[in-house]
Design a binder for these strands. Structure first.
Length: 352
DNA sequence: AACGCGGGGAC
DNA sequence: GTCCCAGCGTT
């Protein structure tokens, strides 16, 4: 890459950023820079939109204002605070990392790549983001926005995983020595507002004069899209159990796998549709079971789930090991989105 | 290199 | 409905 592009691109981006930056809660002035808040925001923002993160960031940092406080909390509290945000291993890893930072780094988030990358939940992107945004160091930072911008500017028509080394090199070269944090955030804002995946607004782009794809009308072809596999459909029966004290039965999922440690209403195994057996329904307890009209559908990252809900009333609470909650308390529980869909479906299809 | 891992907004 | 999002850990 030519030196003139390197210098001028970051200058253009910083000028653009000063005029167009979004006002986000984790964007502090220099004197208020807080590596802890940078870390939490970057973890929350992994594969998650800014709009979804904002309320969670406020709640989380209000409840745990320091790493020390966070390291002293328990995992259930953290999982509850994360419920609804998705990708729950991030919450587990934050807890693990907080303990390590407190124990081994005197409550200070490391300021070098080799130590950062060792922490659970911090990979190449997040390490670079913390180095630039929290510590104003020059680093290679590649998120999906910056990746797309570089591929377009350079007119790279190969699949991105074939040019990984090249992208790392270019992203570091483009990163300025001063205001590196502002620069990477400028690039991400540009990717979000201008250099979008589809129908980019090139006429508004401050760096279009550096862009091979703009000049050659290739922005709709770069980055090349790879076909993704269709996701499978799973089916299951979910059991809505009401006790003779008018409370609802829940249990906590195991701390590994899907929705780790989250509360749920019990269900049968989630079976892939083609393998569905016609065996008799195995209810968790004897009783007068009745199906509820309709199904609850929910799409996860790698499969879709269709739930048929069955309801049983007047159950003795001592017959089941788990958590019993009053119906009025259900909406206030920390449930994953799937289970929120479930209780809304039940409430709207029964007349309690 | 491919997969498991959530949820929601834009279109 | 499909695509995408400030990715990471595991296999």
């Amino acid at each position: 890459m030519k030196v003139s592009i390197k210098d001028n691109l970051s200058k253009k981006m910083l000028l653009w950023y000063d005029k167009n930056k979004r006002d986000l809660p984790w964007r502090k002035s220099k004197k208020d820079l807080n590596p802890y808040q940078t870390w939490i925001s970057e973890i929350m923002l992994q594969q998650t939109t800014v709009e979804a993160v904002i309320p969670y960031f406020h709640k989380f940092t209000a409840k745990w204002p320091t790493i020390k406080k966070l390291s002293e909390s328990n995992i259930e509290e953290i999982m509850d605070a994360w419920s609804g945000l998705g990708y729950y291993s991030r919450a587990k890893n934050i807890h693990k990392a907080a303990k390590i930072i407190t124990k081994e780094y005197n409550d200070q988030i490391p300021n070098n790549y080799d130590e950062l990358i060792k922490l659970p939940g911090i990979g190449p992107y997040t390490a670079g983001a913390i180095l630039t945004i929290a510590y104003d160091k020059k680093a290679s930072v590649i998120d999906s926005n910056i990746e797309r911008i570089i591929l377009r500017i350079q007119g790279i028509k190969k699949p991105k995983d074939k040019v990984k080394k090249e992208l790392i090199k270019i992203s570091e070269e483009l990163c300025p020595d001063i205001r590196s944090g502002d620069y990477v955030q400028a690039m991400m804002d540009l990717g979000s507002a201008i250099c979008k995946p589809n129908n980019p607004k090139c006429n508004l782009c401050p760096i279009k004069k550096f862009c091979y794809s703009y000049k050659n009308n290739l922005t709709n072809l770069i980055p090349i899209k790879k076909t993704r596999k269709p996701i499978k459909i799973r089916k299951a029966r979910l059991f809505w159990i009401v006790s003779n004290q008018n409370r609802i039965f829940l249990r906590r999922r195991p701390l590994t796998g899907l929705l780790p440690g989250m509360l749920e209403f019990p269900s049968s195994d989630w079976i892939i549709k083609s393998k569905e057996s016609k065996k008799e329904i195995l209810f968790p307890i004897k009783g007068n079971w009745k199906p509820i009209t309709g199904n609850v559908m929910h799409t996860f990252s790698h499969f879709q789930l269709s739930l048929k809900i069955y309801i049983c009333r007047d159950v003795n609470e001592k017959k089941l090991e788990g958590i019993w909650k009053k119906e009025n308390d259900i909406p206030n529980l920390h449930l994953p989105s799937l289970m929120k869909k479930v209780y809304k479906h039940v409430f709207s299809n029964t007349n309690n």
